[in-house]
């Protein structure tokens, strides 16, 4: 049996805001964005971090931002002036891990969290086996950030 996903956009916003407030407040708070990531920052490439949730509801939480934003996030988390690509991957993975872990806490018990995956890729769109359920467009440090929650068809 597949459980229906029952979240509010505000739930995702609050979870994400808690993460940003704890570790990324140096560059100011997250704000709702009136425009999409593509509109705010047209780019051929995004850093996309994802983590899977398995259980009565099975799906994926993704965090997307431009490479320069991801580097700013990594520098802020590490309190360093310069970081390497491995640090950016690590930082984005940890951010989506925290967001996904806390979203998992809002789901029925018994779910498990996968390990984060971070890639640089063109815009991520739904595949044949995935359905985009929630999309939260935010801005931080004057740059766009997007959280999406996808379910896996089965």
């Amino acid at each position: 049996m597949t459980t229906t996903l029952d979240l509010q956009l505000e739930d995702i916003r609050v979870v994400t805001d808690d993460v940003w407030t704890s570790f990324l407040a140096t560059y100011g708070p997250l704000e709702w964005s009136p425009v999409t990531l593509e509109e705010a920052s047209p780019t051929d490439e995004l850093v996309q971090a994802s983590v899977a949730i398995h259980g009565d509801w099975t799906g994926t939480v993704t965090l997307e931002m431009a490479p320069a934003t991801a580097e700013t996030a990594a520098r802020t988390m590490l309190h360093l002036d310069a970081v390497e690509e491995v640090d950016v991957t690590d930082a984005l993975g940890e951010l989506v891990n925290m967001i996904g872990g806390n979203i998992k806490s809002l789901l029925p018990s018994g779910s498990t969290l996968g390990l984060p995956i971070v890639i640089r890729a063109p815009l991520c769109t739904a595949g044949a086996s995935t359905i985009e359920h929630y999309r939260v467009e935010l801005t931080w440090a004057g740059t766009p950030i997007r959280i999406r929650v996808w379910s896996t068809a089965r």
């Binding site: 570790f23 988390m77 309190h79 993975g93 940890e94 390990l115």
Partner: peptide
């Protein structure tokens, strides 16, 4: 922790 970033944050 498998994240070096998180280990540094914990230490901080």
């Amino acid at each position: 922790d498998d994240s070096r970033v998180m280990r540094q944050i914990v230490i901080r």
